[in-house]
């Protein structure tokens, strides 16, 4: 099975992956422990984990024979940047509107 590379928005579009992130938001978990919460095969869980890992949402650490998953900031930063973009977009547009209206008032 080839590993898909999805962007952050595609990653969070999947309900199972969101649920995995929720579980990981409480504590780091091994892949086996995560898999116990889902009615899907262990390879299917691994695939989701790979996808989240590739998009920067989790990091994976091998301790002994177990692989531990922990939430990571990078994926979330990209989501935040999306919101920040619109924040700046509107702020600059509204400033422009203010200037246009003020210039017009002066002329009248």
């Amino acid at each position: 099975m080839s590993t898909q590379t999805l962007d952050v928005f595609q990653v969070i579009a999947d309900p199972s992956r969101r649920q995995m992130m929720q579980l990981l938001s409480k504590e780091s978990m091994t892949i086996n422990a995560l898999a116990e919460n889902f009615d899907m095969s262990r390879p299917a869980v691994s695939k989701h984990i790979k996808i989240m890992h590739n998009a920067g949402f989790i990091s994976i650490k091998t301790i002994g024979r177990e692989r531990y998953c922990t939430l990571k900031q990078d994926g979330f930063n990209e989501l935040q940047q999306f919101i920040n973009y619109f924040d700046k977009f509107w702020q600059s547009k509204l400033k422009k509107l203010q200037m246009i209206l003020d210039n017009k008032s002066k002329l009248n």
């Binding site: 969070i12 579009a13 309900p15 969101r18 649920q19 992130m21 929720q22 938001s25 409480k26 939430l71 900031q73 979330f76």
Partner: peptide, 16 residues
């Protein structure tokens, strides 16, 4: 979509 599931987003934000 994220907030639909038991306020999952809140957990994630707190964690972040």
């Amino acid at each position: 979509n994220l907030t639909d599931h038991n306020n999952g987003w809140m957990f994630l934000c707190n964690k972040l």
